[in-house]
């Protein structure tokens, strides 16, 4: 407990400390949030507490795609209208929302829950890679789309998984790299620009 919290009442100090542990919350924000909660109606505060409890108690990882879900298997994995021959591999659950927003993909997902990061000591065994391999054993999947982020770690993860899957006879593809909408050629890096040239398309 730091100096600022010792003079506050114990329950107040405790909540300030808890908020302070959250990412992006400094000591001042923690105090402000705590005193805000003191002032709001009790039912609003309890609703927040209940939401946190349910978040932890009522969510599980989908046994198929490893996404965070309330029911196992998750809604996407249960949906019969989706193409079961394609799996889109992503880093974090939030990336599903990004891909779904495009309405351009109708297959299934697989969440790795991280990315290979050799310098931080995160290897393939710390990710949901074996679960992905298990899904492919059925032989129903024809294509795996690697949709990890286009940075060094994402590329490493995608190359590693591709090395594992290619012997299984599954087609492994990677999201194309190119120039983002609304960007400026002048500021494009060499890697992106050379990939954009390689994969150019007829207008």
């Amino acid at each position: 407990m730091n100096e600022a919290t010792t003079s506050a009442a114990a329950p107040v100090a405790r909540l300030i400390d808890e908020f302070h542990k959250l990412p992006g919350i400094g000591p001042k924000s923690a105090q402000r949030l705590t005193y805000h909660l003191l002032r709001i109606p009790p039912e609003d505060a309890l609703a927040l507490a209940q939401a946190i409890i349910e978040l932890k108690e009522r969510t599980v990882l989908c046994s198929v795609c490893q996404n965070v879900t309330e029911d196992d298997p998750c809604a996407i994995c249960r949906d019969d209208s989706r193409d079961r021959s394609m799996i889109c591999v992503i880093e974090e659950p939030l990336d599903i929302l990004a891909v779904e927003r495009t309405r351009a993909f109708h297959g299934l997902y697989h969440v790795l829950h991280g990315v290979i990061s050799p310098m931080d000591g995160i290897g393939p065994d710390d990710l949901k890679v074996n679960e992905l391999l298990a899904r492919l054993r059925g032989g129903a999947v024809h294509e795996v789309i690697m949709a990890t982020n286009p940075n060094l770690e994402g590329e490493a993860t995608s190359m590693y998984i591709s090395r594992l899957l290619t012997p299984l006879g599954v087609r492994v593809t990677r999201l194309a790299r190119g120039l983002p909408m609304g960007s400026d050629l002048e500021y494009a890096d060499d890697v992106t620009l050379s990939r954009a040239l390689e994969n150019r398309q007829d207008v």
Binding site: M119, D120, G121, G139, Y160, L164, P167, G169
Partner: peptide
Amino acid sequence: VRSAGFIDTVRQRRPARARAPQAPT
């Protein structure tokens, strides 16, 4: 050195590519 572990992981995976049987299509 953490990345040393990754070199080993990558190396282990290398011969597997040649040895692994083809999956039934």
